[in-house]
Design a protein around this nucleic acid. Sequence first.
DNA 1: AAATTTATGTGATAAACTTAACAATATTGA
DNA 2: TCAATATTGTTAAGTTTATCACATAAATTT
Lengths: 208, 208
Amino acid sequence: MTNKGQILRLLNYKNLLKHLQTLGFKKVFSDNISDTLEISSSLVRKDFGNFGITGNRKGGYEIDSILGKIDDILGKDEIQKVVVIGVGRIGEALMKYQGFMKEGIQIVAGFDIDPSRINAEGNPPVLHNDKIADFIEENDIKICIMTVPQMVAKHTVDLLTATGIGGILNFTPIKFQSSAELTINNINIVHELENLIYVVNKQKDNKE
Amino acid sequence: MTNKGQILRLLNYKNLLKHLQTLGFKKVFSDNISDTLEISSSLVRKDFGNFGITGNRKGGYEIDSILGKIDDILGKDEIQKVVVIGVGRIGEALMKYQGFMKEGIQIVAGFDIDPSRINAEGNPPVLHNDKIADFIEENDIKICIMTVPQMVAKHTVDLLTATGIGGILNFTPIKFQSSAELTINNINIVHELENLIYVVNKQKDNKE
DNA sequence: AAATTTATGTGATAAACTTAACAATATTGA
DNA sequence: TCAATATTGTTAAGTTTATCACATAAATTT
Ligand SMILES: NC(=O)c1ccc[n+]([C@@H]2O[C@H](COP(=O)([O-])OP(=O)(O)OC[C@H]3O[C@@H](n4cnc5c(N)ncnc54)[C@H](O)[C@@H]3O)[C@@H](O)[C@H]2O)c1
Ligand SMILES: NC(=O)c1ccc[n+]([C@@H]2O[C@H](COP(=O)([O-])OP(=O)(O)OC[C@H]3O[C@@H](n4cnc5c(N)ncnc54)[C@H](O)[C@@H]3O)[C@@H](O)[C@H]2O)c1
């Protein structure tokens, strides 16, 4: 029933509705959402229907109620603990980023092999790599952000697989496949940029 | 003819083929690619066909030749110049990242409003925001990476739109729509993480 | 040189995803 | 109170994307 893009759409709905909420709106119509997010209103209603979000004919949807439902769907009743493996430039930027907190995500630790990176008293602490397995087990960590050098990516995935973690958000350029036990989602920033460059160059060509 | 995911697939083909090349392989079959990338071999052949990449029946495809064709398609004959707006944590990580270079992408400048960030002698230089428009025009910049705070994202997009830039890779959580003149691709890291968390929690629920 | 094998190239088929259409129904206003 | 109106909920239709299946052609074997 739920398809791949549906959760990402749901997150976009959430962002928009929160915004409308701060503007003082109480209700919303599928048409309003469809206009700003540039998808059809029937898709909005279908998504809502699939997730058990109901409105009133003629009356639209209540924003508070949708937001509550979305949080339920996303499991926002408890804080999601996440660790970062590889506290280099990108890993550190993510660790220091304040934007996760208000979505109920907490980065509880970082891990690195470089002694100069380690700071057990930090907030969050940066620990030595050899503590990963214990930490994940003791703290019941399900999700990891992987920002290690490409060279050690495979090794790190193997390490994490052994710990029984559930998901990895992988920023290295190596593309990993998910298995039944371990979901690996790949973010390839270089590819995103190359893709954008392609699109821009093509639309420029078309104009000439 | 070309569809949305096709260029990103092409980039994955490129990565894989480069790897095979370094291992000494000269030829490849659609089946080999299909196995490692977990898509059907017919999709590989169809992609190749769509882009004019041909092989030999029974003989497969020549790796060198495909890689050359892919570079042609992606316009890798000239270096793509990119600028970064907002040289904070994430912007700085991107500016210092060496991985763009070998894909023919060069970050030629960063821009910020914070005087302490500015360093005109840096490599690449970080300039004051008020130089963006001139720099883009003088250096014929088509692509920009936007890593400013969410608060000024809208303002920054307006500024960039006026310069006539062609594409923005947007890391802020605000989702922007593309227009005919300006392509805006959004990378929402928080959403990627929330999505992963959802998938992992759901598969855990299913197991119980 | 014929037969067999093996991989491409592609049209038909299927699956996934999105939109269109409209009946059902709550609300508003006469 | 009842008609007019506006919006949901849902089924049908449409679109896009991916796979299947096989005819075709190159290579290898007999
Ligand atoms: N920086 C970027 O903008 C950017 C962009 C796209 C992709 N990436 C990818 O993200 C990853 C990290 O990039 P970065 O620029 O932050 O690199 P970085 O070198 O700054 O950071 C990598 C960190 O990982 C640590 N590390 C090395 N081996 C480790 C191991 N076995 N276990 C744990 N930690 C280990 C290093 O000590 C270092 O602190 C790379 O794979 C890179 O290709 C980075
Ligand atoms: N850091 C992360 O891990 C992360 C993750 C996801 C999303 N983001 C998003 O990326 C963006 C940047 O995040 P960050 O952590 O690097 O923030 P940051 O505060 O470290 O960096 C922002 C930079 O933008 C500069 N700036 C402010 N106003 C500007 C303007 N008008 N023009 C040009 N520059 C300006 C600031 O001086 C600062 O250097 C934010 O929108 C954030 O939500 C960051």
